[in-house]
Design a protein around this nucleic acid. Structure first.
Lengths: 215, 215
DNA sequence: TAGATTGTTAATCGATTAACAATC
DNA sequence: TAGATTGTTAATCGATTAACAATC
């Protein structure tokens, strides 16, 4: 059996395809072609078909894809056929924002616990949850609540320490919002999201329009 | 003059390099090699040198790069040598989180205004700002406060309408947090950030470890 | 000079796309 | 059958990397 390495960009697009199919499903559309999907999200039809072909044959030649079925297939590919429990570390501005953000729930992620290590915050309520003591409770709670993913929303300086403790507690997938490169063992998956960087890429592009780099 | 197209990935890495250099600067390190930068952030030294070479010659052969100077150069390349005024559209959970997030300020982005179109929110205070009426005030405020960037944190259904009005008001750079593909004229730059998708990529990777796609 | 590290070229690697046979 | 659209191959395109001359 030949094993393919699937491009990171393909996975990114799968999440976009699934969002697009969700909309079509709501509209009551039953069948969609690669060309229509492509147009809606701004890629080529070949790209759509190639991306899907990594995982199977989901369409009908001459007809297209069944919206409901394809959505289900993609959700399964992304691992969204089951629920995932998530912990948020850091009850500051960003942490509390992510805690209240409804977009996670919609996609099958349940924020099961929120942690901080500030004594003034520990014990206070956030929504329907009590803010837990990161240092004291993290190991037990992760086991008890079967939490497998963590979102790190702590200051950059403490991010590595937090991630080390999460790894130690058995977490295998981490999204890091602290603007710092962190290291984890090879069996743990770490993603970094830098919110300010999103704006920086905009300003680069706006700037470089009036400027030509070259030689 | 030959014009290079600079890879998107290069710009992404520039933001990471600048963060890394910031840290080194704080530590008091004066000189750094491409190999050290590469190791710290997990890329190859050739990658670092190639990325920088798109924009100029910033190092000294046999020596390395001056940390302070290189950081300044990269900040300039990213357009961060001047301040940028930003508007946040949507005063819900995510919008208010982004409003309070300190990471923008640190990189030279000033959140100058926050808008909503819910009458119950308009007029209320958020931090030191009053929530403004998106439909009524957007054009004037964007001109008055010289706002050039916008962050869209509204529900998916109203995102396209909001973006249209922003484009109409003269905004040229938009970061969209609503999970929907939107369309803008070609002179406007739109970036999409899907927070749930970050978790989905994790779950895909965790899943696919125990699963082999291929044929 | 010897050692080190950049800047740059050419080779490699991988992702995208055009094209078309398969087939509904 | 004719028309349409998939799944897949091969060609193209672009990004990464190895290697090395330049030079501090």
């Amino acid at each position: 059996m030949k094993k393919y390495k699937i491009p990171e960009a393909t996975i990114n697009r799968l999440t976009v395809y699934s969002r697009c199919l969700e909309q079509e499903e709501i509209k009551g559309i039953e069948t969609i072609s690669s060309a229509e999907i492509a147009r809606k999200i701004g890629v080529t039809p070949a790209q759509v078909r190639k991306d899907l072909a990594y995982f199977g044959e989901f369409g009908t030649r001459g007809v297209g894809y069944n919206v409901k079925d394809l959505k289900k297939h993609i959700m399964k590919i992304l691992g969204l056929n089951s629920k995932w429990n998530v912990a948020i570390i850091g009850a500051g501005n960003l942490g509390s924002a992510l805690f209240h953000y409804k977009g996670f729930q919609e996609r099958g992620f349940y924020v099961a616990a929120i942690f901080d290590n500030n004594p003034e915050k520990i014990g206070k309520k956030m929504g329907d949850k009590v803010i837990l003591d990161f240092r004291q409770d993290i190991n037990n709670i992760i086991k008890e609540l079967r939490i497998s993913l963590a979102i790190v929303a702590v200051p950059a300086d403490s991010a590595q320490e937090v991630v080390d403790k999460l790894v130690n507690a058995g977490i295998k997938g981490i999204v890091n919002f602290a603007p710092r490169s962190l290291s984890v063992p090879s069996d743990v998956i770490l993603r970094r999201v830098d919110l300010a960087a999103q704006l920086e890429i905009l300003t680069f592009n706006l700037q470089s329009k009036s400027q030509i780099y070259g030689k």
